Computed example of a mutant assay.
Amino acid sequence: MKNKILVFTILVTLFIISCNKKTNIVDIEFTKEVSFDTIKVGDTISKYFEIKNKSSTQLKIKNLKTSCGCTLAKLKDSIIGKNSSTKIKVTFTAEEDNIGIVNKSIILDSNTKPNFTVMYLKGYVVK
């Protein structure tokens, strides 16, 4: 009987300890979409996306990608402290194959859940 009580006590203690374990998952707030007006083929525009770390753990941005070569994304800081923010500068150069509605993705890989955050640059290109 004493062994059962001891085992039960150990299991309850382990359960409580595991529930109190801090997580490294970060909660963020971000600009989901940025739009630009109509631009012409050959024009280049730059827009900014803001990311705010809303948690007590550092936000660590591992990778930043765009959906095509006509869009470049540059990150100011890859590690963002708690309650701090950073900006991503996105530059888009309109090419012939971009004529019409433009919807480019910017993909952020970080220690958030889910790991990938997708933002969109939208606009319209004319000849």
Results as ranks from 00 to 15, higher is better:
residue 13 T to F: 15
residue 79 I to H: 02
residue 56 S to Q: 14
residue 45 I to D: 01
residue 96 E to W: 01
residue 14 L to P: 01
residue 39 I to Y: 04
residue 46 S to V: 01
residue 41 V to H: 02
residue 43 D to C: 00
residue 30 F to S: 12
residue 95 E to D: 08
residue 103 N to G: 09
residue 69 G to P: 02
residue 34 V to S: 10
residue 113 K to F: 11
residue 26 V to I: 08
residue 55 S to Y: 07
residue 86 T to F: 08
residue 96 E to Y: 05
residue 84 S to W: 00
residue 103 N to M: 12
residue 43 D to R: 11
residue 16 I to A: 15
residue 33 E to W: 04
residue 40 K to S: 14
residue 98 N to K: 12
residue 44 T to N: 09
residue 14 L to H: 01
residue 61 I to K: 01
residue 108 L to K: 00
residue 34 V to Q: 14
residue 73 A to Y: 10
residue 20 N to M: 13
residue 112 T to G: 03
residue 88 I to E: 04
residue 80 I to H: 06
residue 21 K to A: 03
residue 89 K to M: 14
residue 24 N to S: 09
residue 28 I to Q: 11
residue 53 N to T: 09
residue 15 F to D: 08
residue 32 K to C: 04
residue 38 T to C: 10
residue 27 D to V: 12
residue 16 I to E: 04
residue 110 S to Y: 03
residue 78 S to M: 11
residue 60 K to D: 01
residue 100 G to R: 06
residue 65 K to P: 00
residue 114 P to H: 12
residue 98 N to R: 00
residue 31 T to V: 08
residue 92 F to I: 08
residue 68 C to R: 04
residue 96 E to P: 08
residue 23 T to S: 15
residue 61 I to P: 02
residue 112 T to E: 05
residue 63 N to T: 03
residue 57 T to F: 03
residue 42 G to D: 08
residue 67 S to K: 07
residue 37 D to S: 13
residue 91 T to F: 07
residue 99 I to H: 02
residue 110 S to H: 00
residue 73 A to D: 02
residue 106 I to K: 06
residue 109 D to W: 06
residue 54 K to V: 02
residue 32 K to E: 15
residue 84 S to T: 10
residue 94 A to G: 07
residue 95 E to Q: 13
residue 44 T to L: 11
